[in-house]
Amino acid sequence: MHEMGIVLQIIETARAAIPPQLQGIQVKALNLRIGKLTAVVPESLRFCFNIARQDTVLAGASLRIEEVPIEAACRDCGERSIIETPPFTCSRCGGGDLAILSGRELIVTSLELADP
């Protein structure tokens, strides 16, 4: 629902990461990590990105999204499990006291620049 705002932040983050001597060079690809417990829908993000990238150095950039699974550690038995769907319970003991280890990521990991 707020994917456009997030896309604008992503584009700003990417632009700020390009060193001054390389400003103006087109970005070929943008790599993101998005956790599955993040309130971001990759399809909506792509849709918004295709609109927002126009007239920026990311105009020709492809968006590569690596989805990060929800991994949780059980505080009772220590088991680590990947959670595909609710409920959030331990796959070994069935307990519900879990620490979420991953799944909330929303990270620009790297950019690939075109050859100057």
């Binding site: 932040q9 990417a14 993101l32 990270i107 790297s110």
Partner: peptide, 13 residues
Amino acid sequence: MEIKVVRKVLAVN
């Protein structure tokens, strides 16, 4: 050329 970024998108917030 690859530029490593590793920055949270919501870091400003």
